[in-house]
Simulated assay, not measured.
Amino acid sequence: MSDAILQLEDVESGYGELQVLWGVSLQVKPHGMTTLVGANGAGKTTLLRAATGSISAWRGRVRFDGEDVTRLSAHDKASRGLILVPEGRQLFNDMTVEENLELGAYAKRARQKFSTSLERVYNYFPRLKERRDQKAGTFSGGEQQMLAVARGLMADPKVLIIDELSLGLSPLLTQQLFGTLRELKSEGLTILLVEQNLHLALALSDYAYVLAEGRLHSQGPSREVARDPEVRKAYMGV
């Protein structure tokens, strides 16, 4: 029996008649960070969507916390603690910071920890606490990304999946958000990260998977993947 908290086994999926994923398998071990890297169009976001249930896995299996959850809805998976912070943030722009955070804690298991979780995310992101009554749509891109991550944490995740944490952000904000991920990881949160900044992602994560054209290209401990000449040439510009 695998000790992974999240397992994808030979997953195939896509959109309409367009197949994007071809038999992809990966494992996410608890209390660490796994990163998924690859070029634009490699299928990374599609894989996350198939894992979390926003699209169906055509073939293969998704196991989470010891159960086969392949056919469960995105809502059911989220209520069990499989939480996605999507690319593009998808905040409710006309709602305040605190209203967005309240929506993150909609599941029963999260509602029971609401006050504790709210205090926790405000400790991670003091700027959000300062602006808790401000509408999300008035925020900068970096502040919105902070709020998106905070909303994911409000859901009391067993696995927090983050799709493109630093997309469109300044180097300074990127460093700040990676600092928060480092804290979360040190506290034992399980994280699956898709990230364009491979230097930071591979430096912080424990294990990495490289996706190419919808198939698994390579995998291994992040330090080894970072030294792989093919990966360095294709994705790191080295």
Rank of each mutant, 00 (worst) to 15 (best):
L181C: 08
G88F: 09
Q112T: 10
G168V: 12
A107R: 10
S54T: 15
V37E: 01
S115M: 02
R89C: 15
P86W: 07
R127I: 15
G168D: 07
G104L: 00
L204H: 14
L18P: 01
L211P: 09
I55K: 08
A208L: 01
G88Y: 10
G152L: 05
Y209H: 00
D206M: 02
E98L: 11
L72T: 05
G16M: 12
L103G: 02
R127M: 13
E130G: 06
S73Y: 05
R109L: 09
V238M: 14
K135I: 13
P30K: 07
G179T: 10
V194T: 04
A136M: 09
F92Y: 15
R182H: 14
L167S: 13
V24E: 03
Y207I: 00
Y207A: 00
Q90F: 10
I83C: 06
S2N: 14
Q19A: 12
Q7M: 13
L84Y: 08
D68L: 08
V62E: 11
G43V: 06
V210N: 02
T174P: 09
H199C: 04
L169G: 03
D163A: 11
K158E: 07
L26P: 01
L160E: 03
E99Q: 15
S222I: 08
G152A: 03
S73T: 14
S186E: 13
L6W: 07
A201F: 03
F125A: 05
R111C: 01
G14L: 04
F64P: 06
T34G: 07
T35K: 12
Q144T: 12
A39D: 14
P126D: 04
A57P: 09
E102W: 14
N40P: 04
L189Q: 11
S140V: 02
S79Q: 13
L128N: 10
L48F: 13
L184S: 03
D94C: 04
A105T: 05
R151P: 04
R89E: 15
E230I: 11
A110P: 04
R232N: 09
Q112M: 06
K29R: 13
T180E: 15
S170Q: 11
I162C: 01
E224Y: 06
T190K: 09
L153V: 02
R227Y: 00
Y207S: 02
G38L: 08
E187V: 01
T35H: 12
S140Y: 06
G104A: 06
T138E: 14
S56T: 15
S166K: 06
G43K: 11
R49W: 02
D94G: 12
G214W: 08
L189T: 03
H31P: 01
L167I: 13
V210C: 01
L91E: 11
E9C: 07
S218T: 15
K158M: 02
Y124E: 00
T116Y: 06
E143V: 12
Q175T: 15
E99C: 05
L84W: 08
D3P: 00
I5N: 00
A78H: 06
S115P: 00
G142C: 12
E9D: 13
A208K: 00
L181G: 10
Q144I: 10
H199K: 14
Y124K: 02
W58S: 12
L128A: 12
V69Y: 07
T52Y: 05
R59L: 08
